[in-house]
Structure formats: structure tokens, C-alpha cells
Design a protein around this nucleic acid. Structure first.
Ligand code: FES
Ligand code: FES
Lengths: 147, 147
DNA sequence: TTAAAAAAAGATAAAAAGGTCTTTTATTAT
DNA sequence: ATAATAAAAGACCTTTTTATCTTTTTTTAA
């Protein structure tokens, strides 16, 4: 469905949303340990996220990652779009050049409604709204707390 | 979304459903040319489909691929399951060990309804029903007829 | 019964995704 | 100023996916 990098990225951003702030930044090390994700790989992903301005960072001691105000209003679709490209949802399910209702592939009308709706869901809910829900209902981001 | 092999496989099976029969079998060559898919790669995929009894074949002159009665009642989900594995839909969207409503990840309730429904759609409609619809409405499987 | 046709099988190669390691740059506290 | 810290950058390695090539087996028709 999504690339592993993309999955890691979503979980990381949510973890940062939940646990970091401009005063208490969080490093790659902590994130990679808590989420059980390979450190160097995650570091690359975080760099990408930072360059794309989906998360913020500062170097040096007391440095790390956090979400500034703009970052907080981003949504999950922004992350998917950055990591895997929006075509993962917008493109034709069977890989034909364009997904076009005027020129539909055999499964177009089977999948199109879902593609639309799921993109909507991931666009309309901000990272912070997700974080609030996680805090409220105790959803897990890590493998550890499942057992 | 799906692997390229899986997409090729679905399109090929539909093409065979539409154009082949036990009397008029179709070879890899024709399928690869019409669908614009690399011949040797497609040959491998067809072997897999044959071994899994999703399509039928005979060797030698006048040989080729076709769908027997059992094959015709198969569905798209069978193909996806063979090529990519059912976890592509059943597994957790964020890659956590198990997708379990009792222990949901942050996006579980956002995506779970879609996963269920789309699997249903692809399970409940047989290959031949898809073929009939294609014949009726003129859906395209190839890139050529789009322009 | 032989030659041609076509799938099956298996070995190999190229490209992409996933993952690691090393060096550089920026920041902060001492 | 200096040492320590942590991200940024870039080179590198491994595995999986995608694709190709070659040989073998089966079948049919002449
Ligand atoms: S044309 Fe294939 S999904 Fe829309
Ligand atoms: S637990 Fe993640 S999608 Fe169900």
C-alpha cells in the first residue's frame, strides 16, 4: 500500500506531534528507538520531511525535531505525497497512463469512490487533530505497546 | 498500490477472458504486444497464474492460454492475493504487526471501512462478470486505445 | 517421425527500494 | 574559544522487484 519509508514518516511525525515542542525538541535517536525503526534510514526521512517543511529542526545540543505552527496544520496526505507521490492514490489502479472517468479502466468505478474518499479523509484532518485523537483514545504508534 | 506484476496479471487475465477460449487459445506474445507489457516478464507471470490454477494453458502449436470453467469463476482478489499477498489490503496501513480493531493504529478507523469494502468488491465479482461489463461498456485494458 | 510452435523452467541482469556509514555544518554550554 | 551535541549531506551497500536470456519439454501438423 504505502512504502515503508512513508509508513515510518507518518508514525514519526505523529510521535513528534505528541511528544515534542519548540522547548523540548526530540532527536532521531529517540524516535528510532521508540518506533523501532532503523536509525540511519529514519534520519534520511526526517531530512526529507524537514526540507519539505513538514517538520522543523535545529542542530546542535538541545537540537532536534518539533512542529512549528505551520507544521501542525499539515495533514497525512502531505506526508504521503512527499514520500510516495500522490499518484499512489490518484493514478489508475491498473497502471494505465491516466485515471480518467471519461476513459475508465475495467476497475475504475470499483475503486474510484474509495480513492476519492480516503484522500479526503487524510487531507481534511490535520496532524494535530490526529494527535489529539491519539491522546484521547490511546491509539498506538509503536509495536511495543501491542505485545 | 499494486505491484506492476499484479497490474499486468489482472489486465492479462481480463484480456484472455475477453479474447480466448478453449478452441482459440492466446499466446504470451499477443498479450504482451496488445497490453504493451515486456514479453519475458509477462511469461513468468502467466506461469505463476497457471501454476496457481487461475488460468489454463497447453503447450505446443495451437497452444496458449485460456480460461476453463473454474478459472472463469475466479475473481480479481485471487489474482491480487497470488501476486502481492492479501496483506496488501488486510495488513495495517501503517505497517504495525496486526491490523486489529481492538488495538487500532491512529489511522485504523480512517482506512478500515475502505479496506473491507474494496476487498468485497473484488471478491464478489467474477472475472467473467468483469469481462461481460468490459464488453458491454467498452472499457479499455490497453494504453493504445486511449491515445 | 520429424520439424515447428509454444509454454515451462531456470539462470542472469538491471533498476529501485531499503538500509548503513562517514564526514561536514551548525548550535549551545562550558 | 573550545568541546560536545545533533542535524545535514553524501557516498556506499544489500535486498527485492522488475526484466531478460537460454534451454528444455510438450504438443501438433505435415
Ligand atoms: S482509470 Fe483505472 S482506476 Fe481510473
Ligand atoms: S491497525 Fe493500522 S490499519 Fe488497522
Amino acid at each position: 500500500m504505502l512504502s515503508t519509508g512513508c509508513k515510518y514518516a507518518i508514525r514519526s511525525v505523529l510521535y513528534i506531534a505528541l511528544n515534542a515542542s519548540e522547548e523540548k525538541k526530540i532527536g532521531v535517536k529517540e524516535v528510532s528507538e521508540v518506533l523501532e525503526v532503523p536509525f540511519p534510514f529514519l534520519a534520511k526521512l526526517m531530512q526529507q520531511l524537514t526540507k519539505a517543511k513538514l517538520i522543523s529542526s535545529t542542530k546542535g545540543p538541545k537540537g532536534g525535531f518539533y512542529l512549528n505552527e505551520q507544521d501542525q496544520s499539515r495533514n497525512v496526505l502531505d506526508i504521503i505525497n512527499l514520500m510516495d507521490g500522490i499518484d499512489k492514490f490518484q493514478g489508475c489502479f491498473l497502471g494505465l497512463s491516466k485515471c480518467d472517468p471519461a476513459n475508465p479502466c475495467p476497475v475504475h468505478f470499483t475503486v474510484a469512490p474509495f480513492k476519492e474518499e480516503i484522500m479526503g479523509k487524510f487531507r481534511d484532518k490535520s496532524i494535530m487533530e490526529f494527535a489529539a485523537e491519539i491522546r484521547l483514545t490511546g491509539r498506538h504508534i509503536t509495536l511495543k505497546d501491542i505485545v
